[in-house]
Simulated scan of single mutants.
Amino acid sequence: MTVHLQPGSTVMFTGDSITDCQHLEIEQPLGWGYPLRVAGEWGFRHPDRPVTWLNTGIAGNKVMDLETRWQRDVLDAHPDVVSVLVGINDVGWHTYAEDGYVIPVDDYTAGYDRLLTPLAEAGTQLVLIEPFLLPLSDDQRKQREDLDPKIQAVRELARKFGAHLLAADGLFAELAATTGPEYWAADGVHPTAAGHAALAAAWLRLVD
C-alpha cells in the first residue's frame, strides 16, 4: 500500500515542532525540516507531477492543541494527503521529571481518533508518523514508559483507518545503534539535519 500523488495533489504536514521548523518565522512556508526535504526531492524527481505542499505544524502542540485548530488549519484546506506527527509533547517531556505531568494514553488515542475520523470519511490519504525519542539520559529513558504505549496507539490507529505508517521510532533506534543518538537528534527529541533527511527519505518510500 502506497501513497498516491497525482499531479495537482495537495499534501499537508502537521503536528508539533518537529514538523513546524519555524515555517511561520522564516521565508520558507514549509520550514527547514523534513517537509521541505520531501517537497524538494519530489520536485526534483517528478517535475511532471507538481504537488502543492503545506505545513501547519506548530511547536509545542499536543493532540488537544491540534483539535482546537483542526477545522481551520487542516479540514478547510481539503488536502488529498495529510501527514501527522504528534505525541512527544503529550508525554510532557518538558516537565515530566518535575511534576509527573502525563496525558493518559486513552485520552491521547481518543483525541487522535477524532482528528482522523473526518479525514477518513472524506477519503483523504493519511500518513501517521510515530512519535519517537532517542534517550540521552535516565530521565528520557523513563519517559519511554509513557511514550511506548502512545507509539502503539498510533500503530493501532493506522490499522483502524487504513493509514500509511512511518515507523519513525524503530527507524531512529536502528540508525542510532551504530552512530549514537545525538547524531540524529541532539536533544533526543528534535532531529538534526541528518535526522530530518532520514524522516524525509522514509516518507518518500511510502509514496507511489
Rank of each mutant, 00 (worst) to 15 (best):
R72V: 11
D148A: 06
W53K: 00
G57D: 02
L115M: 13
M64E: 15
P135K: 05
G111L: 14
R45G: 06
V86I: 15
D146L: 02
V51G: 01
L116G: 09
H94R: 14
H78K: 14
K150A: 00
G87T: 03
Q125R: 02
T124L: 08
L85I: 06
P104D: 13
R141M: 07
K150S: 00
G92L: 00
V82F: 01
Q143R: 05
L116H: 13
Q140C: 04
G87M: 02
E145H: 05
D148P: 00
T52Y: 01
A120Y: 14
D107W: 11
T109R: 15
Y108S: 09
R72D: 12
T124M: 08
V82R: 00
P135D: 06
A77M: 11
T56Q: 10
Y112P: 04
D65M: 03
D106H: 13
V74P: 04
W70R: 09
L136H: 13
L66W: 06
V105P: 03
L134G: 02
D48C: 08
V82P: 04
A97H: 15
V127Y: 04
T117K: 13
A59F: 04
A110S: 15
L119C: 09
D139Y: 07
Q125E: 13
L54G: 05
D139S: 14
W70T: 08
Y101L: 09
Q140L: 01
W53L: 02
A122W: 05
E145F: 05
T52G: 09
T109Y: 12
R49H: 13
E121N: 10
D139I: 10
V102A: 06
R49W: 03
D146T: 01
V81L: 05
A59N: 14
Y101Q: 13
F132W: 06
L119T: 10
V74W: 02
D148Y: 00
Q152W: 12
H46Q: 12
M64P: 09
L75G: 07
R49I: 09
Q143T: 00
I103P: 01
S83H: 05
I129A: 11
R141V: 04
W70I: 10
D106C: 12
A97L: 07
D90Q: 06
P50E: 09
L85D: 08
W70K: 10
P131W: 06
L133C: 07
G111T: 12
I129Q: 14
Q152D: 14
R49A: 11
H46E: 13
V91C: 02
T109C: 12
Y112R: 11
P135T: 03
P50Y: 08
V74A: 11
S83F: 02
V74E: 03
K142S: 11
P79N: 01
Y101D: 11
T109S: 15
E121D: 14
L126I: 10
G60N: 06
I103W: 05
V91M: 00
Q140Y: 02
G92A: 01
S137Y: 11
D99Q: 08
W53S: 01
P135E: 07
D148V: 07
G57I: 09
R49N: 14
S137D: 13
R141I: 02
P79L: 02
N89D: 03
D73T: 09
D73H: 10
L85Y: 03
T124F: 05
